[in-house]
């Protein structure tokens, strides 16, 4: 009577110890594999980052505020750009003629006239090995102002304007091919706030 119970108990015991062994082994395997996987992932990521030029320059546009412009009058839209830290782009008036200037080209809308585009002044920098060569650049953040004048006939409302910012980025030792950033923004066209006063005496309709 006791024997089968003992057998049962030993079977149960062996099953329990096997399960314990299995779970312990699985846990050890999981821990080792997890550590390996983390190191492998970190390794592949860091090796990719170590490659020279792994950091690529880019220029991004902050979500522009929508300027309200009265139809028939000129107004300005401010476009605020960010450059990847560590890089610079040529200003709109680079110091050397062969350098590619930063320039915004706007698509010509039909009922909103795009006027002068105002660029900020660049900052003069020098590169290593050439202290005499001054480059006029933008770095960090900069704003470009676009003058727009909605025609008097334009209906009040929001209008989308599209363009492209051409730029060419460098760091202190290398230059990247020219790029174009799509630049889309809106302007809100409003009615004139100047109301024409009607002289009731002259009005043909006197109520």
């Amino acid at each position: 009577m006791v024997k089968p119970l003992t057998e049962k108990s030993s079977t149960k015991k062996s099953k329990t110890s096997a399960l314990k062994f299995f779970t312990a082994a699985s846990f050890r395997f999981s821990a080792i594999a997890l550590t390996s996987a983390i190191f492998l992932l970190i390794g592949t990521k860091s090796s990719a980052q170590e490659g020279f030029g792994s950091k690529v320059p880019s220029v991004t546009l902050s979500a522009p505020a929508i300027p309200s412009i009265i139809r028939g009058t000129p107004g300005k839209a401010e476009l605020h750009f960010h450059i990847t830290p560590g890089f610079h782009i040529n200003s709109n008036a680079p110091s050397e003629e062969y350098l590619i200037p930063t320039a915004l080209r706007m698509d010509a809308p039909t009922d909103i006239v795009v006027g002068r585009i105002i660029y900020p002044a660049g900052q003069n920098i020098t590169l290593p090995f050439a202290p005499d060569l001054k480059l006029n650049v933008y770095s960090g953040e900069f704003s470009v102002f676009v003058t727009v004048r909605p025609l008097s006939s334009v209906l009040p409302g929001k209008y989308a304007l599209r363009g492209r910012l051409k730029y060419q980025a460098c760091d202190k030792a290398a230059c990247y091919p020219p790029k174009e950033l799509p630049v889309d923004f809106e302007v809100k066209v409003a009615k004139s706030t100047h109301h024409v006063r009607h002289d009731p005496a002259q009005s043909p309709h006197i109520h």
Partner: peptide
Amino acid sequence: RDPIVLVIVAVAISAMLFFAVRRTHRK
């Protein structure tokens, strides 16, 4: 230790290893 949890962890680790190795090959 719940064996089901361990199996899930093992599957997740295998997936991580698979993608890491594939990424290395692609590079």
